[in-house]
Design a protein around this nucleic acid. Structure first.
Length: 756
DNA sequence: TATTCCTGCCAC
DNA sequence: AAACGTGGCAGGAATA
């Protein structure tokens, strides 16, 4: 009953508010005639506005006072002739009109100001003259305009080229551009082919992998990448806020540059852009790319080792990645379907259980949303009679799973839905419509340390990309090699620890590697007080859980994990963690000195080097001034900024060592990938690079590979990039499905029996 | 309604 | 007092 009364009351309130509003509007209409524009603006600006709206309104006000825009008659009076008050909504409508007009003005001005040395090529004659000219160029800048960002399916609508010697910038539109003047695409590409495929003509690009692969889809084997201004920018400053050409040009070249969206609108097709506009836009792109290249080269040359690294590793790597990406993946959809159904069923059962059990602790009419931490935290806290700080699986829930069945079921539900939602259900939808394979992106500059990131293309809105590097164990078997092929994976054995041994010169570590002992196993033996052999990797290549745990501990400790967190991780008291760390690391004074020297270096210089000055990691926070906080004042809000400052400093100090180790290791992986790719080309016969996961390189290879092939892989892995005198190691696996690997010996044993 | 932020979790 | 580095992505919540 109370509910009903409340509803009526609310209805009354609404009705009376409507009446008041109506009265207000009527009086506003009466006063509209009297209100001046200044008064109207004052009224609008006095109302509650977002910053964005405030900016827009200010622009409209300025334009109106300049007389460049005015109210439309349909807005000033109603049909009956009653004056209408100037409103915020009307002003925002005027803003849109203003934007459209500005855009048109900008485009017109762009065309009027087309530089003398910009040339639109639309005739066979002009094209053949240009092609002849190209043959004499040592280096050019080049860019493709396309219908979209799917390099396997979308079309090229034009190509722009900068000829630096003669300072000319051309744009060659091709069909399907809706313009009578554009030439046939295949004919243009054929004419350009000799230059595009000529490795002796150097090419400067912005995001080279994109252009290389979309040209490949059009039957052109693009060669001669000499510089990628996008990846070079990452090397010059890994902290750059944006790596878009349109942001870099104003910042580093002092050249204003409109974005595509600003000029043409969000979903505009470049093929629809009139050719005079297209010329200025596209030719300017390669001109800017060229100038950015000159700027970058000048700066990078000041660091000869870094310059050498960029041109001999990062640049050749672009071809390797482009090949790897376009080779793509095959997914076993039957596996996905079967596994997906199993997961769905499991999830539904768990969901029912959870909703049922939590119903009485959940407030609200709707059933509880199990995926919402917001709803789950209070309900679950009540259900177990204990306040949970969060729903973090590792820290909060896992320790409680044995005591409370509901938590155990929730963790299982989370695992199942994560697997199903992110991987098993999602991946099959990402098949490329043209190649029928799955293509991911590998970004060689996707991280601040030099590791690859993997995922979707930044511009891609179709969601066709996916991260190859975080596929869970259970999902990997969905990835299969083509028929009659296998996957061969080789990892760098203890890559980061070998790297640490090399960088620090720690004799205990170096000696361990030289005598074939495994530091993780040594540490596990020490911690668990069990024989070395028992905790080491098993003969079949699988890891023991003890060794696996030490792997995490080793790295975490190296990267500055506190004793508190270490104790937490190992389930021991802080003082025991401290003692354990002292025991392990105390025997390695040179390693400790090196860890310390990384801190002093970064505090002095604001950056650290990866390996032989190949890559910088700039950590300016290390140079902040450390603030003193008196004992017992940590909760005093007055010391908030100091706390923040100090934690930024501490973070930078931890990052210093991490960046050196991760950076140096990633260089090893990249150099080795180039050699691995070279090996594929030498072998031919269906050998392809298949992927990389930080310390691992994978191939797809014909199933009749030989022991000699394996020896080649071993050589490539261990000899392509040396960590000084520290030997490299590798473990090689052969698989019919990703993750279902066997050792090489097992493979050949099965093969001899004809069991495959 | 579309975009951005946040939390949580997968990998090395 | 805080407490381990590098990523990408899903889904909910908050914001525009």
């Amino acid at each position: 009953m109370a509910q009903l009364n409340l509803t009526n009351l609310r209805g009354d309130l609404v009705a009376s508010a409507d009446r008041r509003q109506a009265v207000k509007q009527a009086s506003a209409r009466k006063s509209a005639a009297k209100e001046s524009m200044d008064e109207a603006w004052a009224r609008i600006f006095a109302s509650k506005l977002t910053d964005a709206d405030r900016g827009k309104l200010a622009e409209v006000k300025r334009a109106m006072s300049e007389g460049s825009i005015g109210r439309s008659p349909s807005d000033t009076h109603t049909k009956k002739g009653t004056p209408k008050r100037f409103s915020k909504a009307e002003a925002i409508r005027l803003y849109a009109v203003l934007q459209e007009r500005n855009k048109a003005d900008r485009l017109r001005k762009m065309v009027e100001d087309t530089p003398e040395n910009y040339e639109l090529i639309t005739t066979d004659d002009a094209l053949s003259r240009f092609v002849a000219e190209l043959q004499n160029e040592e280096i050019i800048a080049i860019d493709t305009e396309t219908t979209g960002v799917d390099v396997y399916s979308d079309d090229i609508v034009g190509i722009s080229v900068t000829l630096p010697d003669s300072d000319r910038h051309v744009y060659i539109p091709v069909e399907p551009t809706k313009d009578d003047h554009a030439m046939n695409r295949a004919a243009v590409l054929d004419a350009l082919r000799p230059a595009l495929e000529d490795a002796m003509i150097g090419k400067v690009l912005f995001n080279a992998i994109f252009d290389r692969n979309i040209l490949r889809s059009h039957g052109v084997e693009f060669r001669g990448i000499a510089w990628d201004a996008m990846t070079a920018m990452h090397l010059l400053n890994e902290n750059e806020p944006s790596y878009k050409l349109k942001d870099l040009a104003p910042k580093y070249l002092g050249v204003e540059s409109d974005t595509y969206d600003e000029l043409f609108g969000k979903n505009a097709q470049f093929a629809e852009v009139p050719l005079d506009v297209a010329l200025v836009y596209a030719a300017k792109d390669t001109q800017l790319t060229w100038e950015l290249y000159r700027f970058q080269e000048r700066h990078l040359r000041k660091f000869p080792e870094m310059y050498e690294y960029y041109t001999t590793v990062e640049v050749p790597l672009l071809d390797v990645i482009a090949d790897l990406e376009s080779n793509g993946y095959i997914l076993d959809l039957d596996f996905a379907k079967e596994y997906g159904e199993r997961l769905r069923k499991e999830a539904a059962e768990l969901h029912e259980y959870l909703v049922d059990k939590l119903a009485k602790y959940h407030e609200g009419d709707e059933p509880i949303n199990v995926n919402s931490p917001h709803q789950m935290r209070p309900a679950l806290s009540k259900a177990i009679g204990k306040e949970l700080p969060n729903l973090d699986a590792n820290r909060t829930l896992k320790p409680l799973r044995k005591q409370h069945e509901i938590i155990d079921r929730l963790l299982e539900y989370k695992r199942v839905t994560k697997l199903s939602g992110t991987y098993i259900e999602a991946l099959p939808k990402k098949q490329n419509r043209t190649t029928k394979r799955w293509h991911s992106r590998f970004n060689p500059m996707g991280t601040v340390t030099g590791r690859f990131s993997s995922g979707k293309d930044e511009e891609d809105k179709t969601g066709s990309g996916f991260n190859v590097q975080n596929q869970p164990e259970d999902v990997r078997p969905m990835f299969v090699p083509p028929p009659d092929k296998v996957l061969i994976g080789a990892d760098f054995k203890a890559q980061e620890i070998r790297c640490t041994a090399y960088l620090s010169g720690e004799p205990v570590l170096i000696d361990a590697f030289n005598t074939g002992r495994d530091p993780y196993a040594m540490m596990a033996s020490q911690f668990y007080k069990r024989p070395y052999e028992e905790v080491n990797k098993l003969p079949d290549g699988s890891d023991t859980k003890e060794r696996k745990q030490m792997k995490v501990v080793w790295l975490a400790t190296l990267y500055g994990m506190s004793d508190f967190a270490l104790g937490d991780m190992l389930g021991i008291a802080k003082k025991d963690a401290t003692a354990f760390k002292d025991e392990v690391f105390g025997s390695m004074p040179k390693l400790n000195a090196w860890l310390e020297s990384n801190k002093t270096f970064v505090q002095k210089n604001g950056f650290v080097w990866a390996d032989k000055k190949y890559r910088k990691r700039r950590l300016k926070d290390a140079q902040l001034k450390r603030e003193f906080i008196p004992y017992g004042k940590y909760n005093d809000p007055k010391f908030e900024p100091q706390r923040l400052n100090n934690s930024r400093i501490n973070r930078a100090l931890r990052q210093a060592t991490n960046a050196r180790v991760q950076g140096t290791s990633s260089i090893q992986t990249k150099v080795t990938m180039i050699e691995a790719d070279r090996m594929c080309h030498e072998k031919g016969n269906g050998w392809h690079l298949w992927g990389t996961v930080h310390d691992e390189i994978l191939w797809e290879a014909p199933a009749d590979f030989t022991r000699a092939d394996i020896a080649d892989i071993e050589r490539v892995m261990t000899e392509s990039y040396r960590f000084g005198d520290v030997p490299n190691g590798t473990d090689i696996e052969v698989a019919r499905r990703w993750g279902h690997g066997m050792t090489v010996d097992e493979w050949f044993k099965q093969n001899e029996k004809g069991a495959i």
